[in-house]
Structures are given as C-alpha cells and as structure tokens.
Design a protein around this nucleic acid. Structure first.
Lengths: 195, 195, 195, 195
DNA sequence: CATGAATGAGGATTCATTCAT
DNA sequence: TATGAATGAATCCTCATTCAT
C-alpha cells in the first residue's frame, strides 16, 4: 500500500465517520474527537485533511452528493426516450435511498439545515444537469408539464427522501410494491395527463 | 396584564427566539445565551420555563407542529367531499408554508434531524388525523389510490417543504400560478386516474 | 461588600496574576488556566472581564502604565523649576522601579515585545505628557539640550529599566549611592553643559 | 558546495527564520512549523540541528550576541586612548543597531523576557570584556566616573536599544545629527565632568 | 541527512446550567 | 418570579515533537 493510498484511506475513514455520527447524533453533538476516534486517528490528524469542522462537513456533503448523482445517472443514456430515461433515473435514485441509506440520510439532514456553506451547496447541485436536460426534452415533446425544475424535483424526486427517513425511523417499510406505487405517483405528478 | 399573562409572554418570546435562531444558525450555533438575549430575558430565566435545552426545543417543536395542524384544518368540515376537502386542506398548508414561513422552516429542519426527542415527534404527529381520515374516505370511494399514508403524505404534502426551503434560499419564487401547478401535481400523484 | 466591589476585586486579581505569571514565565508559557487558578476563579470567569487573552494583556498593560505615570507625577507641580521638577520625577520613577518591581518588570517586557496591540501601546503613552512639557520648558530655558523627546527619554529615563532588570536577575544591587550616581548620569546626559 | 557547507546553510536559514519570526510575531506565536517553512525545511529537520525549541532560541541568542560583540570591537585596539576607544566602540554599536536592525531587535526582545536560559544569557555576556576593560582603564585615568559596569552600560550603551525600537515602530528616525547628539549624551553620562 | 505524516498533550474559548440575591 | 455572575466540563484547534521511510 503506497503512502498516498494510506492517506486516501484516512480521508475516507474520516468522511465515513462524519456521516455515521452526524446521522445518529446531529451536527451538534458530533465532536471532532468522536469522529477521530471512530476513524482511528488522532484528533490532530483531521486537520491534515480538512481545514476545520465546517470544511470537513462541507467536503463530506460534496462527496456524498457527487456519489449520489453518479449513482443516479450510471446507466442513463441521452438516447433514451423521456419516459424510459426518467424511469431509469428515478429507480436508480430510489435504489440509492435504500441501499446507500446512510449517505441519503446525511444528504437529507444537510439539505434542510444551515450546516453547509452556500458555496458547497451550489457545488453539490452541479451534477444534476442530465436530469434537468431530460425534463427540458420532455417538456418540448409535450410529455412533461411545463413547470419549474424546482416543482418537478419537489414532486417526482424529493418525496423519496421523506420515505427514506420514515423507513429509517421504523414507521414504514418500502418494498417492491411500494416502490412501484411511488414511481407511478412521481410520474403522474409531472407528466401531461390527457383527459 | 396579569402575572400569568406576563409569564406566557416570556415563554412565547423564548419559543419565538428559538425558532428564529435555529432557522438562521442551526441547532448547533444556537446557544442558550443568545436565545435569552433575543427574548430579553436572563439565561437563568429559561430554566424557569423549560427543564433544559432539549426540553426547550422539544416544546417549541410540539407547539409549532400544533399551530401547523390547527391552521391546516381551520375551515375543514368532515362533511365536505373528498376532493374539496383535500383541496381546502392542501391550500391551507400551502398558505402556512408561505405566510408562516419561519414556523415552517423550523419544522422542516426538525423533521430531518435528530434534534427532537422521538416522544416529541410522536406528539407532533397526533393532530394530523383528520387528513388521514379524509384519505381513508377517499380510498373507500375509489377516488384516492389505496396506498400507505406515508406515500400519500410524501407525494401530496411534503413537496411543499422542499418548495418552501427553495424559496427561502432565493432560488425560486412561489406565485399563484406555481401554487396551482403544485396543487395539480399533488392531486395527480394520489388520485385514481382513469385512463 | 457590594456585588460591584466583588467584581472589581476579581478583575484586579486577574490582572495581578497576569503580571506575576508573565513576569516569571513569559507571555508564551502563561496559559489562561494558570491565570485563573492563581486568581482563584474558573477559566470561564476570565471571559466575563476580558474579551480574550490579548485583551487581558492589553488591559493589564494600560492599567500598569497608568499606575506608573500616576506614581511618577504624584508630587510634581508645574510651578517647580526645570531641574527640581526633573529630579523629583526621576526619583519617583526610580522609586517605582524599585518598590513596584513587578509592575516595572511587566512594562519592560511589554515594551520590547510584540505582545501588546499598537492601540494599547499608544493608550499607554498618553499620560507621559507632563514630562514632555517639562522638557520643552527646559529646552526653552536653555537648560536642557534641544533634542527629540525620544533621545531625552532614552538617556534619562529608560536606563532605569535596564538597571531594574539587572537587579532582578541578581547581578547587581541598586542602593542609595548607586541611585545618586544614576541620577547624575541621567541629568548630565540631557542638560546643557557649559564648558 | 560540500555536504558540511550545506548543513551550515540550513542551520543559518533556521536561525535567520527564528529571528525574523520572533521579531514580527513574538516568541509566543512563533511555532516550529512556521520556522521550518520559512527556512525551506521540514519541521523534523530542525531537530537534527537543535535539541528542541528552547535550544533553538538559546543558540540563536548566543549566535546573535556573538555577532554583535564581534561587530562592536572590529576595529578597536587596546592601544587607543580611552575616549577614542569608547567613541569607536559606541559608533560601531550604533551602526549595528541601524544596519543589523533585525539582529538588534531580536536581542532587545530576548533581554527583557524570560525566553532565554540563564546559562545562555551568561554565555552571551562573555565577549563584552574589552569594553569593561576600557572602562576600567578610563576610571583609573580619571576620565570615566567610577561606577558599576551596569550603570555605565545602562547609560552609555543601552539607550541605543530604546532608540532602535522606537525607530522600528516608526515613531522616530535616527539620522546623523541624532546619532551625534546621542553619542554626546552617552559620553556625558559616564565621563567625569570638571566644573 | 532529510522528510512528511502523525500525534498526544495542552491551550484558548464556549456553553449549558446553577446559585446567591 | 427573575436575574447576573459564576463555573466545570467540554469543544475546537494548535503545536512541539517523533517516526517510518
């Protein structure tokens, strides 16, 4: 294992510990010392990789957000039809919320909280472009309702966060049937419905 | 003004300050001393009204959540038709998110964060029953899709939180057109659609 | 003892402890915790009286400098002759260096070190005006050499700091004979000498 | 360049960096890491040349002090008359304070501070002997007042430190006229004056 | 000889909470 | 009831020093 490799491992361990602890205890109640302990490093070591606590959280956010969008668009091709493309992306995102539950939880907490720098938030949004392009295409083709991206996201994608959190709290279980229902709700909320 | 009245004023001032500061700075970065200062009260006084910081936040949450549901069902009558009842409640909730923006922000932050006791969270959900009853009725009448309450809430109500936060961040502006679009998306996501 | 009185006592204890510890160990090697312990207060209490460590040292400097000049000009009257006035002030300053040794040591350390804010340094100089006025009078009367105040201070006053430090280090003892010799050297260094 | 040469270069770079940083920021606020960076060296390398931080500062002090006295006595011959010898040495010292300002500043800061070991301080004084001898000769010849070396140094040499610091702070400018005035004050403060 | 990474110990500062009044 | 002063226990962060390479 090279030195550089080892360094990346430490950085990853720190980010993983941050996610774990912030998820369970919140940003408040997550001291640097606990993060260090969980990552098996000295508190001082954190500062070799991150400027300060804020920077650690910002970078964790950016990293997780990038992983999220990468996952979402993994198999997506611009040559797909609007509906097929949307379904593919939507299901990938749903998968992410289920399989990468910790990452998804972390993002949900960041997104409703002033714990992330505005700059990092912007950085995190960047990679969502393919979805916006798909919607634009759908609108041009008369398949998707001509609405703001914010509305489209709010109704077709964001509900998955609520469901993921509800499931995490144990109040509710997402299964294949549910997922299909959810997908149809999402699609119906944004598609043009011919009466 | 009676003595009791004065006490309630102080309690209210504390709750208001808590909301304001948690909204702007997050739970971390909201010390008791700042809450006291904003409420024009000594730090020690907080402990006459609340057991500790956790209790203060819990009670703030419960109070805001109660205000939210009270607002939502203000003019609702069980005698209304399912669709009319849903539209009424939905628009009240949308109003709340717009007019009582600070309260709504606070709830959004609490709901995705481990800053509230599980018990207080349960307490907060209680008053949502009329909406659940309405949905049950809608399902029985074949108007609303037979889905879990969590799915119905996730798609028809929760998106408003996302929109409210986006608006607060300045990225997006909710106007009458938008609201109507949003309502239709909400309704289409849960209603039975006859092909 | 009133509450205010008690506060002033604590402030004084903190300033005294700061002088003592900085004298013995230097600004580096004087942690706030030690200052607190020596003043019999909690570390947190320091921050009720001073903004931070820098502020504590600045204010200590200003306070000691004020005490120094107050002592220097205690019995001085502007009606005195230049020579009598100078001798009086000089001897008061010499007394201060001997009797208020700790205070003098502290000033000497501050004056040759970047540990004090420039603003506080300026504040500390303020009260030296009577001496400068005396010198101006002496120059006008042809008794004192027409030189910059800095030169006059360097040769007639500042050497006492060197002597005080040497004595503190045990290398040398100031006694009445010495003091008189020192006074004459001081006076000869600034007076006009008729050949 | 030989290997040994390179080592000496590094040592010199470290000492230079120490002087620069301690002058500008004070001993507190001068971490080893900054010294290393300014000397273009790894922090660990410092420990190849010096035992620890204290040792680094001690040795820097001794080295600068040696340079100071070497400079002072450069052209001095014991065969010179007392007055000529004193003037020569005094002017060399004055030159040092002006031209080797950084070195002089560093010494001034060390001399009023507990940042140097007592042993190193003693080591630093050693090389001043020629001046003490000159004074002894002057006293025997009835030219210089029979006073302690400490008094002679305090009045004839030490004031230059005060002037150098004042100049560094921008409050005052030393020029040829000033220097001559200063020299005369110095000489008058220690010579025997015949009335 | 040289180093960059790593760290434990410690430092300044903050904060939830208490207590005498 | 109301408070301002006080504080011990953290918390974030720094730094002199070491060690594997």
């Amino acid at each position: 294992m090279t030195k550089l490799q080892k360094s990346i491992d430490k950085r990853n361990a720190l980010i993983k510990a941050t996610i774990e602890l912030v998820n369970n205890n919140g940003f408040h109640a997550t001291p640097m010392s606990k993060i260090a302990k969980m990552a098996n490093v000295s508190p001082a070591t954190i500062y070799l990789y991150f400027e300060n606590k804020q920077d650690l959280v910002n970078q964790t956010y950016i990293e997780v957000k990038a992983k999220y969008t990468k996952y979402a668009f993994e198999n997506y091709l611009e040559s797909m039809s609007v509906e097929a493309g949307f379904e593919l992306i939507w299901k990938r995102i749903a998968d992410f919320k289920l399989n990468e539950c910790k990452n998804a939880m972390f993002l949900a907490q960041c997104d409703n909280t002033p714990m992330i720098d505005e700059a990092s938030r912007q950085e995190g949004i960047k990679h969502l472009q393919p979805l916006l392009d798909l919607w634009a295409r759908g609108i041009k083709e008369g398949i998707i309702k001509p609405m703001s991206d914010y509305l489209l996201y709010a109704y077709s994608i964001n509900p998955l966060s609520f469901l993921m959190i509800s499931q995490k709290r144990g109040a509710f279980k997402l299964n294949d049937t549910n997922i299909q229902e959810a997908y149809e709700s999402a699609w119906n909320s944004i598609r043009v419905i011919n009466k």
